[in-house]
Amino acid sequence: MEMKKRITLELRNRSPAEVAELVVDNCRSTDGEVEGLSDAFSQLEFLSMVNVGLSSLAKLPSLPRLRKLELSDNNLSGSLETLSQKCPNLTYLNLSGNKIKDLSSVEALQQLKALQSLDLFNCEITCLEDYRDSVFQLLPQVTFLDGFDQEDNEAPDSEGDDDDDGTAPAGVYDDDDDEEEDEEGSEGKVGLPYQVNRANQDEEEDEEDYGEDEEEDAAGVQGLKRKRDVDDEGEDEDDDEDD
């Protein structure tokens, strides 16, 4: 699909001024230039044009609010000075998988004063001796190069930081949840023998009650028998007197 058509579809009946994020990955630029974008995208903060066949950024419109720009897997080898002119507030730039070969190409990024993270992974420039030290020296404003700072500390996950609002995302359990589950599990393990013992006690109590009932019934029968015996003796005495 052509880039211009793809951008029209991504608008989804919105005006360009209403769009803050735009992703047109894997579409096609007919002449290696940016197509379908204009200055009307004045509120755009995130733009992703991955693998669209770009070889130049000359036709990139002015995007003053743009903070993050994804341009990986294209054919860019230069013209990066356009970025400082059209996107002066960039903080994140991904140029991995392009045809950037030397430091002179990257030098154009010096004017991006707000740039904090730069990705040049899979570009030929990474094969240069002292590549990382040279880029950090050339671009002192950059904190993270290819995902790591000068001390090889990994860049924080920006998406994870955004989601860190004190609640675990769906499908993820934090340590407190695990502890609660462990406690519930422990209670369940203790509770089962208790229930069995309780059931046994109830059975024993029932047996005792049943035994007492049997004794009471037996005593009642014996008492009734004694009463009958006494009555019979009384009748015999009366018969003797009559005789």
Score class of each variant (00 low, 15 high):
Leu44Glu: 00
Val106Thr: 12
Gly97Phe: 06
Gln111Leu: 11
Glu129Arg: 13
Ser29Pro: 13
Asp209Ile: 14
Leu118Gln: 02
Asp149Gln: 04
Leu224Tyr: 02
Asp130Leu: 02
Cys27Asn: 02
Gln195Leu: 06
Asn94Ile: 02
Asp161Cys: 03
Asp102Ser: 06
Glu180His: 07
Asp202Ala: 14
Leu71Trp: 00
Leu138Tyr: 02
Val19Thr: 01
Leu22Gly: 00
Leu57Met: 06
Lys86Ala: 08
Gln85His: 01
Glu35Leu: 09
Gly36His: 01
Arg14Val: 07
Met1Pro: 15
Asn94Gly: 07
Asp73Phe: 04
Ser158Pro: 02
Leu93Asn: 05
Ser29Gln: 04
Ala114Asp: 12
Leu224Trp: 06
Leu118Cys: 00
Phe144Asn: 04
Arg6Tyr: 12
Glu21Phe: 10
Ser96Ile: 04
Asp206Lys: 07
Ile100Gln: 02
Tyr173Arg: 11
Lys113Asp: 12
Leu11Ile: 07
Gln110Tyr: 04
Tyr92Arg: 06
Pro156Asn: 12
Gly191Pro: 02
Glu212Val: 15
Arg12Ala: 15
Asp240Phe: 11
Asp238Ser: 11
Tyr92Lys: 04
Gly97Asp: 06
Gln110Val: 05
Val24Lys: 00
Leu118Val: 05
Ala170Tyr: 10
Met49Leu: 10
Cys127Ile: 13
Arg12Lys: 15
Asn74Trp: 04
Leu71Met: 01
Glu205Gly: 11
Asp236Glu: 14
Glu233Pro: 03
Asn75Pro: 05
Leu128Asn: 10
Leu192Asp: 07
Glu129Cys: 11
Gly191Ala: 03
Glu208Thr: 07
Tyr92Asn: 05
Met3Val: 09
Leu192Asn: 03
Phe136Trp: 03
Ser48Met: 13
Glu214Gly: 04
Ala58Gly: 05
Val24Gln: 00
Ile100Pro: 03
Leu192Ala: 10
Gly185Cys: 10
Asn94Ala: 07
Ser72Gly: 05
Lys4Ile: 13
Gly211Asn: 15
Leu76Phe: 06
Lys68Ala: 07
Asp229Asn: 15
Glu207Cys: 03
Glu241Gln: 08
Glu203Gln: 02
Leu83Gly: 05
Glu2Arg: 15
Ser29Ile: 03
Asp174Gly: 12
Gly220Asn: 14
Gln150Tyr: 10
Met3Arg: 00
Gln201Leu: 14
Thr167Lys: 14
Pro64Val: 07
Ile125Glu: 01
Gln141Ile: 04
Glu215Pro: 04
Glu241Asp: 08
Asp231Gln: 14
Asn26Met: 13
Gln201Phe: 14
Ser56Thr: 08
Asp130Gly: 13
Pro156Lys: 05
Glu212Tyr: 12
Asp206Val: 00
Gly220Ile: 09
Glu124Pro: 12
Leu93Phe: 09
Val23Ala: 08
